[in-house]
């Protein structure tokens, strides 16, 4: 073990780690925004809403993320002229944009499925109570269904976010320098195989269990009303 090398390359690893965190946070937020309407579409009886949502979720859950990344980043090159014509090529040639786009779509599909189940699990009585109060459909959704579903979904959603954090490591395959990319870059220059990958592994472990802890705190807070006074 070459400790000096690890210390010397720490700034680069940490800036890679910042990219990892940035990618995770952005795609979690965007994915959640996309997942909620998708979950509603999954539950809708309107085939025009239900079919596309089901297809979207099935495709993104049934294929590997790495293939999806390649499809968006390399595959978009096949439609360069068409994308250029509508002014989108400048985005698709940017690996960072492709990474965010793919990660968002991917996590949205998994999250939508989680929320679909959670919305289904909202107790009937709570919805009936809301209706009895004269709440409109939208208010009922906003004040009763969504908050309750979020509480039900939280443990599974936490797992999904942890998976997403680890999945961001794949963006190094489309030239984004995240934590894995930074470790790989230094490894290829210095041949310090275990120093680099083990340091990256330790940093990922810290991120993962930090996130797990965060979700545990969040769960405790959101379900505080369930804790019995002792």
């Amino acid at each position: 073990m070459n400790w000096q090398l690890i210390i010397d390359s720490l700034p680069k690893l940490l800036s890679g780690m910042a990219v990892t965190i940035e990618l995770t946070v952005m795609s979690v937020i965007l994915g959640l925004l996309l997942a909620i309407p998708t979950a509603l579409a999954l539950r809708s009886k309107n085939l025009l809403l239900n079919w596309p949502a089901t297809g979207f979720v099935f495709y993104f859950r049934g294929t590997p993320l790495l293939v999806q990344l390649f499809l968006v980043y390399f595959g978009s090159g096949q439609f360069r002229e068409a994308l250029d014509a509508i002014g989108l090529w400048q985005y698709f040639r940017n690996a960072w944009f492709c990474a965010i786009l793919t990660l968002t779509l991917n996590t949205a599909a998994y999250t939508a499925e989680i929320f679909r189940g959670a919305l289904q699990a909202v107790p009937r009585g709570e919805i009936e109570a809301g209706k009895a109060f004269g709440m409109s459909k939208w208010m009922l959704f906003k004040r009763v269904q969504l908050p309750k579903a979020f509480r039900i979904a939280l443990p599974a959603y936490g797992n999904e976010v942890v998976f997403l954090l680890q999945a961001t490591s794949l963006v190094s395959a489309i030239t984004v320098i995240d934590l894995t990319g930074a470790a790989d870059l230094i490894r290829s220059k210095t041949f310090a195989v275990y120093e680099m990958y083990l340091s990256a592994a330790v940093l990922y472990l810290i991120l993962t269990y930090g996130l797990v802890y965060l979700f545990r705190v969040l769960e405790k807070r959101m379900n505080a009303y369930q804790i019995r006074p002792t």
Partner: peptide, 13 residues
């Protein structure tokens, strides 16, 4: 440990 580290890192390692 295995569940806290991305697959890619372990594979490369």
């Amino acid at each position: 440990v295995v569940r806290g580290v991305p697959e890619l890192i372990l594979l490369l390692l």
